[in-house]
């Protein structure tokens, strides 16, 4: 719906926001009560409807966009379902597998356990943002060189996690790598090669 598109400056005007909130809010009220009279509610009250979208401004891989999202949308779902960035994977969706790992202001986090709306003003980097043009990030190159995957589903999370780990600068040994990569599971069991790839990227 075009009312939800930002204006040319990339920002929502107050008028556009209220209009779109009113339209969506009205739909909600109708659906819940089946009574057209219920739709006659002031825009201010619409804001309190839980499944109303609100404009959320996100900076992903250096590009800033404002999109309408319900507050409950996780950062992971915003990336995959609303921003067409499917490189970040949904594994367990409960912070147990690490497939959804992205970097927020350079720090690795599980994007499934954080809401998109919490990240206005943050710099978010996904697997799609690591390469510089055709030049792969050193961690990406190391994963290819060491064949550090089989099916590849956990790989974007593994790579983002390794980029965060190297930036943290606390890893020294292979045991450190194993411990500090513990938040990323690989069901194919490519761990030996993952450790080798992270070690090489860490030393380069």
């Amino acid at each position: 719906m075009h009312e939800n598109e930002p204006d040319s400056s990339g920002e929502y005007s107050r008028r556009t926001l209220l209009k779109s909130a009113a339209v969506i809010g009205a739909g909600v009220v109708l659906a819940k009560h089946g009574n057209a009279a219920q739709a006659e509610v002031a825009p201010a009250a619409m804001e309190s409807e839980p499944d109303t979208t609100v404009p959320v401004t996100l900076t992903i891989n250096g590009s800033t966009r404002t999109i309408p999202l319900e507050p409950r949308v996780t950062l992971l779902d915003a990336l995959r379902e609303h921003l067409n960035l499917q490189g970040t994977k949904k594994g367990c969706d409960h912070g147990q597998c690490g497939a959804c790992t992205v970097l927020v202001n350079g720090t690795r986090v599980n994007s499934c356990l954080t809401l998109a709306i919490m990240h206005t003003g943050d710099q978010i980097t996904t697997i799609e943002g690591l390469a510089q043009g055709d030049a792969l990030h050193p961690v990406q190159s190391a994963f290819i060189e060491h064949d550090a995957f089989q099916c590849g589903y956990c790989t974007p999370g593994q790579i983002c996690s390794a980029v965060g780990l190297i930036k943290e600068g606390r890893c020294k040994t292979d045991d450190d790598i194993r411990e500090m990569m513990a938040g990323n599971l690989c069901r194919c069991g490519a761990y030996v090669n993952i450790v080798a790839a992270v070690r090489q990227a860490m030393q380069s």
């Binding site: 690795r108 996690s161 513990a182 938040g183």
Partner: peptide, 9 residues
């Protein structure tokens, strides 16, 4: 406890 990703958040 947890993982680096969780501890970061």
């Amino acid at each position: 406890g947890a993982s680096p990703q969780l501890r970061n958040s």
